[in-house]
Amino acid sequence: MIRVMSVSKVYNKGEPNQVRAVWEVSLHVPQGEMAVVRGPSGSGKTTLLTLIGCFARPSSGEIQVAGKPISRLPEKFMTLHRRKHVGMMFQQFNLIQDLSVEKNVAIPLYPLQLSGRLIDERVDALLHMVRLDKRRAFPVKRLSGGEQQRVAIARALANDPEIVLADEPTAHLDTALSQELMTMLQALKAEGRTIVIASHDPVVYGHPSVDRVLTMKDGCLSEV
């Protein structure tokens, strides 16, 4: 499903503050697999996820999704790729705080050619799945950290993606909520979605549903 071939990402290339965030990384994640990339802060985990999710282009190397190269696509097609295939859970949730729960979840659906009724139905189903039906009209800023995480999950799944990327998904959750989240991701995996998680939380990489654990250090990847 996801094939990363000798990918590097260098920020501020050629300048004194040059950073090698990802260096010569190769990786293959088959469809329906759950892979965890662990490593200390600043090791390049998030950058690797952004490259896989088409949020940024690699400085060198190639990334393929379902056999198609995506890393050199023009901006418009990168957006289309994200819209169709990728759901991303950000470390900081990246929710719009004064928008309601339902509007936040519906954000990825607005640019699509869906009727308002279909969007409502999809949002209903997602909120039901993350058990936030009763918080539908609440502004996100009034929710707890755990609830905000669930809104972020619902939003990541709004476009029914084949690939789910999660960046430190348990960073703001206690152990119980982290377990709950992993159960939710396990269910997504069972639906055949490919999941890549960046985390250094043992609750995540030690979870039985995780197929592979990879370690990143100074931008380089090694399999555990």
């Binding site: 949020f55 418009k76 957006t79 289309l80 994200r82 819209r83 991303m88 950000f90 990246n94 929710l95 719009i96 954000i107 990825p108 607005y110 640019p111 939003r155 476009n159």
Partner: peptide, 8 residues
Amino acid sequence: ILKATGWD
């Protein structure tokens, strides 16, 4: 955020 969630 809008761009990251699929807005063109």
